[in-house]
Simulated scan of single mutants.
Amino acid sequence: MKSKWVRNLGLAVMAISLSFGSISAASASSKLSGKIVINGSSALLPLTLQAANEFKKQNPKVKISASAAGSVTGPQAVRKGIADIGACDWDASTDVPGFSKFTGQVANKVAVIPFSAVANSSSGVTDLSTSQLQGIFSGKITNWKEVGGKDQDIVVVNRAFGSGTRVNFQLKALAGTDFMTKGSNYKEVKSSGDMKTAVETTPGAIGYIDLVYVSGSKMKPISINHVEPTAANVINGTYKVWSYGYYMTKGQPTGVVKAFIDYIQSAKFQEGSLKKLKFIPLSAMKGK
Rank of each mutant, 00 (worst) to 15 (best):
T94I: 11
T181P: 03
W90V: 07
N185A: 10
K140R: 15
N185M: 11
P97Y: 06
N143C: 12
S116M: 10
F115S: 01
K109N: 03
K140V: 11
D151P: 07
N185I: 08
P97Q: 10
A119D: 05
I136T: 02
W90A: 06
W144M: 10
N143A: 14
K187P: 12
D91S: 01
D178V: 07
P114Y: 03
K145G: 01
D89K: 04
S129V: 09
G135S: 07
K109P: 01
D95T: 15
D91T: 01
S121W: 06
V110Q: 03
Q170E: 08
A117M: 11
K172R: 10
S123E: 10
S122E: 15
I136C: 05
S122T: 15
S131W: 10
D178L: 09
G124T: 04
G135Y: 05
T177P: 03
G149D: 04
V110H: 00
T126I: 14
F102W: 03
Q170R: 04
D127L: 15
G164Y: 00
L128R: 10
F179L: 12
L171D: 02
G104M: 15
Q132S: 14
N185Y: 07
S131H: 11
V110A: 08
E146S: 14
G124S: 11
V125H: 02
V147A: 05
G98F: 13
R159Y: 05
K172G: 03
I154K: 03
G183E: 12
K140Y: 06
T142A: 10
S138L: 10
K101Q: 13
D89R: 06
I113N: 00
F115L: 13
N108R: 02
G162I: 12
G98Q: 11
G124K: 12
D127G: 13
F115Q: 04
S93Q: 04
T181Y: 09
I141Q: 04
G162P: 00
K182F: 12
K145T: 05
I154Y: 01
Q170K: 05
V157I: 11
D127W: 13
